[in-house]
Design a protein around this nucleic acid. Structure first.
Length: 954
RNA sequence: GCGAGAGUGGCGGAAUUGGCAGACGCGCUGGACUUAGGAUCCAGUGGGGUAACCCGUGGGGGUUCGAGUCCCCCCUCUCGCACCA
């Protein structure tokens, strides 16, 4: 048989699997099911990078393993194919996005097949398929048709929304508008993140410190009509659901922080209807207001005579020395005195402009301006001056706070800057040093922890937690406060100004003059899909007008029942398709339903979901949200879609040595080089230097770092960088497959290290695992023979005891390692097996069969080829997984360390089942130990059977 | 700044959860076979020491017969979040 040649055997087996539909999955599982899912890729023009096959190989191993264990495996693949690049390409070249996308998908498909993954290709889908996004639109209609019943904590159909009597009385149109306000999908005219360069609005999640996450372009805030999804309604459910899933704690924490639930109180501060000459509302008005509020329930909407604030620390109300409202707060105008008006106007303009810039840069120093007026603190009737400052944001809570500088770091900083008084109301007691406590109580230092109330009237002496509860209750009785919950999570901005995205199935009613009436009409589900119209892409413009505004009239202005409508011209964000694609795989051709409930119940939830950690928050939160809405409608049977989640780590480029050179090519030691604030490389903080990649053989180890061989004083850095085109360290899977084969690529990616870890690429490592596959090949076949011949060492006799022990130890280790997703160690075990058996002149066929089966999930092509060479007629994909025999593992004797004072001084060979006295005796009998114990007092003997013997001596 | 994770040979990484540190692979050294080797095979490979032995898991302390593993303090790196009241 010839040498191992992946270039011929890999395509051969891929073709075999394809022709025989080896991995096609039945509609319903016949045995215990496993749904193993990869995060589907965005089919970029660059093709797969080596990061993709990492997760995909891991799931493929799990799937192939489970099939051999007799389980019914669902393992599909598809493409998250909407995306900006195809659209930008279209603008540049005129190529329709669909054409570009399909070309890219074809390339991805070729690459995925080249790697031998055991997907059921009949279930392949792309989010851009009209037959797929028909159901994305259908789900949108569900969202549109849902309101959230807070009492029941459940989404319900909109026609079950209770209509208040006054609304009902006002007529049909008012009822419709009322319903529209309560839908999970709703429209707002709100300031949004508009990115002129990308030509679209971005979600808060896609903006990092004033620039777009993708591309790094500036983002400005402009008001636009947008679709929102009311994900905040599901905040508590999304939080609670995390307790029921087997996800990495770090990811759960990320989601919990993102949702950012806090509890506290909303409190109304009286501002009256007019500002008195002293800047505060008249005392009498306050008294009247207090009386009017007492005993009443806290109004759902604050009147215009109060400033409503949210606080998590109602126990610090007595320490509120000023208040802050956001510059965008609706009461700014009213609360500004004439004297302050000019200053306030200037400040608001500055603040508005500031939000267009990178705010993080400006976040160093707090800014603000006094409004000239005050509000009345409901706990003690004190007038509290109101400031306007942009460290309070309109989007969170009520957009207004009471500031307690003594017990909040931001307020403390602000108060110091503007010389506002600081009043301590929480005594840390013994929790801090005495002088720190003194400083805190004197208002010289901030203290944000819990403690004991002081300067708080009758509440003095209460512990923080008790105080919170007490005062919230007291104020609620007075009708001026209520317990409240807030979330950092914002509603999800769901519309984009793209051509290449799912159109919304929504029509806007037009009046006789062709103007929108503001009334909406959802397109009936049976009229879906709404396809993307064929049209010429508009010229690049930086206006926020969606491209679909220039769609053909016939598409844009449909007439239904004699009424003229204009279609919604925004499109859905790329996240939409990925929110539910895992459901469609189960029933991809169904044109009656999103998924057949019987099929859904049989396969869901996803048992294992593997993908990059970059989706920790967005994709996984959005998908969970949609899933819960679908659950509320009885469309899916599980509360959570993904039972177990694993994040594969990033693969970095090959390790590089970097040195630094000044102008004249003179080397500068890396220890002197720092990156300055603006990103420039400076030596000793002043001389500019450039970084130079150094050949590994110019470098040697010295101390705990590396230095130049020629100039030992020059330190160089050693590290790996993220793969990027600009750095030129991208590894192309096509090339690796061409050079080493798909099995080697798969095996190497699994051998690099733990799946979750970030690891650097190493081409010689690939070469190493290829060497292993070569050895496996030669262990079994005679690679010098012309015709297919087994290695003469292969024998039909049964394994001897030692061979059997190695065999069963390997089966056990590999099986347990696969279960634990510890693929790197599983491969090590198979290497040990191979190292052992290549030295054996008799290699029992049974052992070879077993190894080939163990190897097959990792390197399926070579395994199939060897399986055939060993005389088996059919694919090994459904061969029973080898089982180990515990009794074959036991050895008669073993070697144990014998220690004196915890240091290994000798090794003893003892029967495996030796008891404590026998072990101690054996150790004492050892010549070396006996010699060392001579003349010493043995204080204690520690014997751990199967582990060691340790003498503690004096 | 806050939060999470991680620091083990020249490199990637192992170590049944407190029990022989460095499995396995790369690289390196020597040897064999070769016209040749970026093929294959054999041997060696944490550091120091002729040796007995000593030192070694980022640094410092501690618990323990015994610590990579547990506790305290510190340093470095990576990834999130970034005025969330």
């Amino acid at each position: 048989m010839p040498r191992y040649n992946p270039a011929t055997i890999e395509p051969k087996w891929q073709q075999f699997w394809e022709e025989h539909k080896t991995f096609a999955t039945d509609r319903l599982p016949a045995t215990e099911k496993r749904y193993v899912l990869d995060m589907f890729p965005y089919p970029s023009g660059d093709g797969l990078h080596v990061g993709h096959p990492e997760g995909y190989t891991a799931t493929d191993i799990v799937c192939r393993y489970h099939r051999m264990r007799g389980r019914s495996v669902m393992h599909p693949m598809g493409y998250d194919a909407f995306g900006l690049p195809a659209e930008q390409h279209a603008k540049k070249t005129g190529t329709p996005p669909r054409e570009t996308t399909e070309k890219n998908i074809a390339n991805f498909r070729r690459q995925l097949k080249m790697l031998g993954f055991s997907y059921d290709w009949d279930r392949e889908l792309a989010t851009t398929d009209v037959a797929f996004f028909r159901w994305t639109q259908w789900i949108f209609l569900k969202l549109f048709d849902t309101w959230f019943d807070v009492e029941a904590q459940c989404g319900r159909p909109i026609d079950e929304l209770p209509i208040p009597a006054d609304v009902a009385a006002a007529g049909d149109e008012v009822v419709r508008r009322y319903q529209d306000e309560h839908r999970l999908a709703y429209q707002v005219e709100a300031p949004v993140n508009w990115c002129p360069k990308l030509g679209t609005v971005l979600s808060n999640e896609e903006v990092q410190g004033g620039i777009s996450e993708r591309g790094g372009h500036p983002v400005v805030r402009i008001p636009l009509r947008q679709w929102m999804l009311r994900i905040t309604a599901y905040a508590d459910r999304l939080l609670a659901g995390l307790d029921d899933v087997d996800w990495p704690e770090s990811i759960k924490l990320l989601q919990r922080n993102w949702i950012g639930r806090s509890t506290g109180a909303e409190v109304d501060f009286f501002i009256g209807t007019s500002i008195g000459p002293d800047g505060r509302p008249p005392e009498a008005d306050f008294a009247a207001w207090q009386t009017a509020r007492r005993g009443k329930s806290f109004p759902a909407k604050e009147g215009d005579d109060v400033l409503r604030i949210y606080t998590t620390r109602p126990d610090t109300l007595f320490g509120a020395t000023y208040m802050v409202i956001a510059p965008e707060h609706p009461l700014v105008d009213r609360l500004t005195s004439d004297e302050q008006r000019a200053a306030v106007t200037t400040y608001r303009e500055q603040a508005a402009r500031k939000s267009e810039l990178d705010r993080t840069d400006l976040a160093k120093e707090k800014t603000g301006v006094f409004s000239g007026s005050s509000a009345i603190n409901p706990v003690n009737g004190t007038a509290v001056p109101i400031w306007i400052a942009d460290y309070v944001m309109m989007g969170y809570g009520t957009g207004a706070i009471m500031a307690v500088p003594a017990h909040d770091e931001r307020d403390f900083e602000f108060a110091q800057q503007f010389d506002i008084s600081i009043k301590a109301v929480v005594d840390p007691g013994g929790a801090v040093d005495a002088d720190v406590r003194r400083a805190i109580l004197a208002g010289e230092q901030v203290f944000t922890d819990h403690g004991t109330a002081v300067n708080s009237g009758s509440y003095d002496g209460l512990a923080t937690a008790a105080f919170k509860k007490q005062i919230t209750g007291d104020l609620a009785t007075g009708g001026v406060a209520r317990a409240a919950v807030n979330y950092k999570l914002r509603d999800w901005l769901f519309s984009r100004q793209h051509y290449w995205g799912e159109p919304f199935p929504i029509l806007h009613e037009l009046d006789a003059d062709g103007q929108p009436t503001g009334l909406l009409r959802a397109i009936p589900a049976d009229e879906l899909p709404i396809d993307i119209p064929d049209m010429k892409m508009p010229e690049t413009s930086e206006s926020p007008e969606p491209p679909l505004e220039q769609a053909p009239e016939a598409w844009l202005y449909p007439v239904v029942d004699g009424v003229r409508y204009k279609r919604e011209t925004n499109s859905m964000p790329q996240w939409a398709g990925s929110c539910w694609y895992y459901l469609r795989y189960l029933d991809p051709a169904n044109d009656q339903q999103l998924v057949d409930p019987e099929v859904e119940r049989a396969w869901m939830p996803v048992d294992l979901y593997v993908g990059g950690a970059e989706h920790a928050v967005l994709h996984l939160l959005y998908a969970r949200f949609w899933h819960q809405v679908l659950f509320d409608h009885g469309l899916v049977s599980t509360r959570e879609p993904f039972r177990r989640l694993v994040n594969q780590g990033m693969i970095l480029g090959e390790a590089e040595f970097t040195g630094y050179q000044a102008d004249g090519k003179e080397w500068i030691s890396a220890s002197r080089v720092k990156t300055s604030a603006d990103g420039a490389l400076l030596a000793d903080g002043k001389t500019p230097v450039v970084s130079v990649t150094i050949d590994p053989d110019q470098v040697e180890k010295q101390g705990d770092g590396f230095v130049l061989k020629n100039e030992n004083a020059i330190k160089v850095e050693s590290r790996s960088f993220k793969m990027s085109k600009s750095r030129g360290n991208v590894v192309n899977p096509d090339e690796v497959v061409r050079e080493y084969g798909a099995d080697s690529l798969r095996l190497y990616e699994m051998f690099m290290g733990p799946l979750e870890a970030t690891k650097p690429w190493s081409m010689s490592g690939v070469n190493g695992v290829r060497g292993f596959l070569d050895r496996v090949w030669r262990m079994i076949v005679d690679d010098r023979a012309e015709s297919p011949t087994l290695n003469p060492a292969i024998s039909d006799s049964p394994p001897d005891d030692e061979q059997n022990r190695v065999l069963h130890r390997t089966i056990k280790a590999v099986t347990e390692d696969i279960e634990a997703l510890s693929f790197n160690t599983a491969i090590s075990r198979m290497m040990e097996f191979t190292n052992f058996f290549t030295k054996q002149s008799e290699r029992p066929r049974a052992a070879m069969d077993a190894l080939v089966l163990l190897l097959s999930p990792f390197a399926p092509h070579i395994a199939e080829e060897l399986w055939a060479a060993l005389g088996h007629a059919d694919t090994l994909a459904y061969e029973p997984w080898p089982e180990w025999d515990e009794s074959a593992l036991v050895e008669e004797s073993m070697e144990l360390p014998a220690q004196i004072n915890g240091k290994v001084r000798s090794r003893i060979t003892v029967p495996t089942d030796a008891d404590r006295p026998a072990l101690e005796a054996a150790a004492r009998a050892d010549a070396r130990i006996a010699e060392l114990l001579e003349g010493k007092t043995v204080v204690k003997v520690i014997v751990v059977p199967g582990r060691l013997v340790n003498f503690v001596v004096k």
